[in-house]
Every structure is written in structure tokens, then in C-alpha cells.
Nucleic acid binder design. Structure first.
Length: 414
RNA sequence: GCGGGUGUAGCUCAGUUGGUUAGAGCGCCAGAUUGUGAUUCUGGAUGUCGCCGGUUCAAAUCCGGUCACUCGCCCCA
């Protein structure tokens, strides 16, 4: 058994679970289409630097969570830990910067070497949206609204809150970061080990520390407000006004920070209270710096990613396929005719199950087990008369129906 | 990467202070019913008690390690 386990942090999606995933993806895809987002699929692996440069060498994702390896040709390859960098790379590779705005939707597997937990896997799946080109706050608004619409359509928006923050423009953030580093460096010995570690990598994260000692320090730390430029403030105001106008409720959370370096301005997360610590179900923000960091032209953009596993846990049981028709041949002679009948019915769009073995009783049992709506019994007697015995499995009644009347009889039933 | 919990049949779980052949329900298979399901009745199969090692006359039970899941930290979707 030990040898036959799936690799830690990976899981098999059996049909019931796969259906839930599919519901999430198809719902998101349909909504994004209404917003004018076209689906894009980029490779599951890229050259390592596609991720390491823009995401940031010091981030957790790059420094300890990537699946990186050398391929047989000696290339440094990484399994994508997220898809924004891959999409940006595709935009540059394909020269799409000439035709902005670009609107992309995606769904697919991502890989991060983390300690697995409920809602956190090493191979996990995300849906996502990227809107590349527009610098206007309207883009942020539209992208957030689309995320909210998807959550709403999935029926999970009501159990989520939207947290919103601004990380300001780059000069604002750089100045603020420097102020924070100065403040915490002066109080280094009061800082928790973890936060001391964060000071070098992502000082903004300290603001969200759960350590009691840190919290006390954070309370007196400089606020971002003083460092926000007028432009950044005005931008954030417009985003908020837009959300207000659309009736999208949010809470301001000044401690909401993104772990990836390429973010700026708007940051947001839809968080559910129903999944414990892994409550962020969809999150993102503006990443004006990304395209430039990758060596392309400076080009503003905003987007988000949503966790399919997490969403799949929250949605209601999706409705299954229509109930099947069970075709039940009796006797050697009927086998081929049953096969042909099955094929014909499937061609006409019906869900049909043809059991492979067993006597009539066994096959009826199987029909019942798969919750067939009707059973069509085809034996030698029926063959002679060019008919089938039509058994209504709910009513428990049956009658003989000529083959050419079958379509009519099935109408409205399955 | 750090700390806690859990691991017994396909599933959900019992299993006493270590003591004979490890149990139940559900499910599965077969029969009652070889051309008719659900209900019912009868019978049956399935376990390296997560794995490796140790203690012991004796280990599902105690100890150590390990793997996996899980909760929190961390991080994020």
C-alpha cells in the first residue's frame, strides 16, 4: 500500500469530485466570457526565471516552494507555482502587447511545495483572470466585479467577505517599506523570530503577524497613509467608489499584503469563514510592475486567482448527468440487436447503459443501481415482434413498445 | 520548515488492565428467483490492525522511528 500512495499533497479526482471541479471551472468560464475574457492555456512548466524574477527571489514561493529541476537538456525548469507570470510571458512571446487591452481567463494545475493541509495541496488548481493594459481604476473594478460574479454564481459569495487594501504605487511602497524597516530594526530584540526573518524578505508581512508581542509593536508602527502619494490615494478612492456603485461590499484591511513582489495598488481577497486557516478563496490585485520586470515594456495590469479545490468544497452538490436508460438483452440472439439499439439511442442524445454480463435479474439490479429511469428489455420474443419491453423503473410498470415508437415514448421521460 | 491530533475490511467505526481464530453496520458477491430491479430472507468473501524496528512467553494495544492524513503556525488560492 505504501508504494501505491499518491505523492504527498496530490490527490486523485474521482468522478464525484471531478464533477465539482468542473462545475467551478465551467461556471467561471461562462462568467468570464460575459466579461469579454478569452481563455488562455500556457504551459505547465516554464524556464525557472519566468517565475523567479517577477515573483521575487526572496518570496516564500520562489525561495522554498517551487518544483524546480533540470531537464535532460540541462535547462532550468520550474512547474508553475501560479499562472500570472506565465500569462505575462505568453503575452510578450506572442507580441500581444500591440493589441491591448488583453483579457484572459485560465484554469489549470499549479504546484507548490508546501505542507499539505485541508484546502492546501502541492498540486492544486486555480481559475484566474488577467486584464493587461489599462492603468485605470475601472479595470480593477471590473476584475473584482467579475470575481464577485463568479463567486455569486457558484453560490459562495454570501459566505465570503471581500477585504481590500492598497499597496500604493512603487515610490510610495518603497518609501513606506524603508520606514517600516527602520522602525522594526530599531526594535529588533522585541520582534518575534519569524518577524525578524520577515524583516529582510517582506517587512509588510510583519503588520499581519499573529504574535502578541509583534502586535503591540505593530500598533505603534508608522501607518501607510502618510506615505501614500496623492495619485495612489486618488486611484484607490476611485476603485472604492466603483465598488460602491456596483453594490459590492468590502472591508478595508490595511494589513492585507501580497507575498509576491509584482503587486502594487489594489490588493484584495475574498475570504470565507468556512474553511479555517485556508479561507482565501479568490485573491489578487494590480501588478503594474510585472511586464517590465520580465523584460517587456512597462504595462499595467490587474488580475486574480481563485482556488478550485477550496471553491469546490464550498459549492452545493452539482446536479449529475441525466438518469440513464438501461438496455437489457436476454439471450445470445438479442446481444447484437441490443448493441445496435444502444448505439442508436446514444446517437439520439440519450444516456444509455448496456450491461456486459449476467442474466436478466442481474442486469435489472444493475439498472436499479445506476438509477436508470427506464429499462428496455430486448429478448427473442421482442425481437420477433420488432419491439422492446419498456419498463418504467420508478412506476414499476411495463408495456411493450414497438421500436419505431420508442423515441416518442422516451420523450419527456429521460 | 515548526507544534498538536489521527491511522483497524471498499466506506464509517468498535476492540476492556497487552492474552486463544480481530468485530459491527453499510457496501460487495452468491442463492431463494436460470425473462424482470428496489423490500425481505439465507449464505459468503475481503484485513500485512499504515510501514519498519524494539520491549514481552504473548503486541491492533506499550516504546522508538517513519509515511500519510488532519488542526494550528507559516504561506497563500
Amino acid at each position: 500500500m505504501a508504494q501505491l500512495q499518491a505523492v504527498r499533497g496530490t490527490q486523485d479526482l474521482l468522478p464525484a469530485e471531478a464533477r465539482r471541479h468542473r462545475t467551478v471551472i465551467e461556471t467561471a468560464r461562462a462568467v468570464s466570457e460575459r466579461y469579454g475574457f478569452g481563455e488562455i492555456a500556457t504551459p505547465i512548466f516554464e524556464f525557472t526565471e519566468v517565475f523567479s524574477r517577477p515573483i521575487g527571489e526572496t518570496t516564500d514561493v520562489v525561495s522554498k516552494e517551487m518544483y524546480t529541476f533540470q531537464d535532460r537538456g540541462g535547462e532550468e525548469i520550474t512547474l508553475r507555482p501560479e499562472n500570472t507570470a506565465g500569462v505575462a510571458r505568453a503575452v510578450l512571446s506572442n507580441g500581444l502587447t500591440q493589441s491591448t487591452p488583453l483579457k484572459f481567463f485560465y484554469a489549470g494545475a499549479m504546484f507548490r511545495y508546501e505542507r499539505p493541509q485541508k484546502g492546501r495541496y502541492r498540486q492544486f488548481h486555480q481559475i484566474g483572470a488577467e486584464l493587461i493594459g489599462p492603468a485605470q481604476p475601472q479595470a480593477d473594478i471590473e476584475v473584482i466585479a467579475m470575481g464577485a460574479a463568479i463567486l455569486d454564481e457558484l453560490g459562495v459569495l454570501k459566505s465570503c467577505r471581500l477585504e481590500l487594501n492598497t499597496l500604493g504605487d512603487t515610490p510610495s511602497r518603497t518609501a513606506y517599506r524603508a520606514a517600516l524597516v527602520a522602525y522594526f530594526t530599531a526594535r529588533l530584540d522585541e520582534l518575534s523570530d519569524e518577524s525578524r526573518d520577515r524583516l529582510g524578505r517582506n517587512p509588510l508581512r510583519i503588520l499581519d503577524s499573529k504574535d502578541e508581542g509583534d502586535k503591540a509593536l505593530v500598533a505603534d508602527a508608522p501607518g501607510f497613509g502618510a506615505y501614500l502619494s496623492d495619485e495612489a490615494n486618488a486611484f484607490f478612492d476611485q476603485v472604492r467608489r466603483g465598488l460602491d456603485a456596483l453594490g459590492i461590499a468590502y472591508e478595508l484591511n490595511p494589513r492585507l499584503v501580497r507575498g509576491l513582489d509584482y503587486y502594487s495598488h489594489t490588493a484584495f481577497e475574498f475570504i470565507t469563514t468556512e474553511l479555517g486557516a485556508q479561507g482565501t478563496v479568490l485573491g489578487g490585485g494590480r501588478y503594474d510592475g510585472l511586464m517590465g520586470m520580465m523584460g517587456g515594456p512597462e504595462m499595467p495590469a490587474v488580475g486574480w486567482a481563485g482556488g478550485i479545490e477550496r471553491l469546490a468544497m464550498l459549492i452545493a452538490e452539482p446536479k449529475g448527468a441525466p438518469r440513464p436508460i438501461a438496455v437489457i438483452p436476454i439471450g445470445e440472439a438479442a446481444e447484437l440487436e441490443a448493441l445496435k439499439l444502444t448505439q442508436r439511442l446514444r446517437g439520439a442524445g440519450h444516456v444509455v447503459d448496456l450491461g456486459y454480463s449476467g442474466n436478466a435479474g442481474k442486469r435489472m439490479k444493475r439498472a436499479n443501481k445506476i438509477e436508470a429511469r427506464v429499462a428496455l428489455v430486448l429478448g427473442e420474443d421482442e425481437l420477433k415482434r420488432g419491439a422492446v419491453t419498456f419498463r418504467d423503473l420508478d412506476a414499476g410498470s411495463q408495456e411493450e413498445v414497438p421500436l419505431d415508437g420508442l423515441a416518442e415514448r422516451l420523450k419527456g421521460l429521460v
